[in-house]
Design a protein around this nucleic acid. Sequence first.
DNA 1: GTGTCCCTCCTCGGC
DNA 2: GGAGGGACAC
Length: 751
Amino acid sequence: MALLDHLNPEQLAAVTLPPERHALVLAGAGSGKTRVLTLRMAWLLQQGYVGPAGILAVTFTNKAAREMLARMTALLPLTPRGMWIGTFHGLCNRMLRAHHRTANLPATFQILDMADQLSAIKRVLKAHQIDDEKYPAKQVQHFVNKAKEDGLRPHQVEAPDSFQRRLAEIAELYQAQCEREGVVDFAELLLRSYELLRDHTSVREHYQRRFRHILVDEFQDTNRLQYLWLCLLAGGGASVFAVGDDDQSIYAFRGARVGNMADFERDFHETARIRLEQNYRSHGHILDAANALIEHNQGRMGKNLWTDRGEGEPVRVYEAPTDSAEAQWVLGEIESLIQEGWSRREIAILYRSNAQSRVLEHALFRAGIPYKVYGGLRFFERQEVKHALAYLRLMENPHDDTAFLRVVNFPTRGIGARTLENLVDAARLAGSSLYAAVPHVPGKGGSNLAQFVALIERMRFETQSLPLPELVDHMLDHSGLRAHYEKEKDGSDRLENLNELIPAATVFVDEGPTPELDADGEVLNADALPALAAFLSHAALEAGDNQASEGDDAIQLMTIHASKGLEFQAVFLTGVEEGLFPHENSLLDEAGLEEERRLMYVAITRARERLYISFAQARMLHGQTRYSIRSRFLEELPEGSLKWLSPRTRSFDEGAALRAAAWADSDWSGAASRLGQARASQPTNPLAAQGIQVGEQHFKVGQNVQHDRFGEGVILALQGSGQQAQAQIRFAAAGTKTLALGVAKLVTLDI
DNA sequence: GTGTCCCTCCTCGGC
DNA sequence: GGAGGGACAC
């Protein structure tokens, strides 16, 4: 069958697994994961095991969902009509829209993004006079989301102390506010959908009967709640086909639970485990480096990537004195790659944290090399666009207080803090939304408020029968947003973004799929909603592209997280330093370190032909110079696959032996966790340039020291503080070593 | 009520 | 270094 041509035996086994069986496919980086997933669906359909309406395929990103859909339609001559392919959030939204009454939600419920959620929480804290220093909004937000991601309501969360109990109370208050305002946050979409299925037998059975095949992409990134949701849907005997890679699990910080993979094999009987280990992407040295690195993690499901593409070139490693020197070096290498005829868009520069991009951008900019930075603000997250959306949300649901507060005085219309305080009081007294409480506010402020309400009402009335794009246009004029940005200097970009909303609405209307009904005539897709409500869901769930457009031949800059799932001919992995990568905040426990290592694994496996790894001795961070030593991850790469481009003061073997000695000497792993504590109690990290005081001694970069075994040396770098401080020291005879200053016996020498 | 200055804080980030 | 929020002056 043409569909199955060119598959390797493992891929073939996965695609053609008997339809009644569950599968856990361990798909290594570059092993053809998406291909297997889409072919499995196509094969099931083609063999007649299931119709399109019987398939549910779930991904994490809209991009992945789109790609899957595109590949499917290219494979089979059928419209994807009736198939549920989408993100967890998108599918849950769809389900909740269809059953909003059963789920106890208003038909026009709005979705809060992370920023909306944070401001909603700040309002809760204010309304209940809660000390926001003791209970910072960010921490409450984390508590709220963590609980939901675990499938729990606040009162179900274990609260060992009064602080936790109070957090849970605040979470309840926040939830009550959301209910009152008819809004749901991202995690609530999932939890509500889960509860809908759990508590309503008829709804559950309906979907269990319908979906006979459930396919899950990036299974290692699922959280507890997503897993429970899948279990409910599959509870009627559906087959689950889960594809994932435990070595690429890099989202524990947002609730992902690799343990779901093991649970899956336990909970779903007769699960076939299939490993895809042939890598079609990277050359041998690059794969060897990745394999050797990930070997250092414990408790893996086990997997070894191999390739028949040959060993290729070694991984190039470079040590720079400073971050700007590192950027200059990257620039130089890129210029010669371009001269050799490499395409710019096939070259990526990766980094651990966004703050690192600036110095790289600066170098590229000055050299006139086109580049694109991924990440950052997306279209629907821009301030002016969010203002516009807030007006639209108010027109759709006037009781949305978050939207109300965002624009009630924007553009300014004489409604100040005092007036709003009165309004908030009135609303609390009446137990109503701010919008509904406006008539209860006396005085001049009250009349200004009344004018605002009249404005919203007028906009609603006048746009009733307008098509969506014209409605948006009307709102931009009558809200005063357009006029405001027209007269603001430097407002032209913002104005442009506002106007961009009109074509966005046009595209949205044109692309809207036709409504889908189930056997009982119930509407099954959100798009049967009024166009405006659907457009607002779309804006919340798909914040827009921040990707470089295909045609642009530009160097690609992004964080390692953002690079997952992508591949490039050449990859520069920068800032590979202790404290930065692994990030110091991840060193508190072994799990954190292992996640950083998986992140490094992801970074390495992005490269097809060339991989460059670099680090700097000194770096500007938070406006201060920081000195650090190279990452332990470098020591975990096989020497035979590396080629050092900068002079090294010692051979690898020597270094490894010394490092082992340093570990034994200094109890480094313990020091790392104490370092975290020291940092918390002592927020200003002593500037290494000014030196570090350890006991009676004062150490500075550039200072000469004497060690009784290693002899005379000079301090190259310092990090940490107090007894936990470490120094990188170059010894005249013994090479460069990293020593714990609190442990190593060092004598400082004059000059 | 509005505009400006200073102080604080700081991973990673999709939906 | 730079964004966002609170305190304070117009």
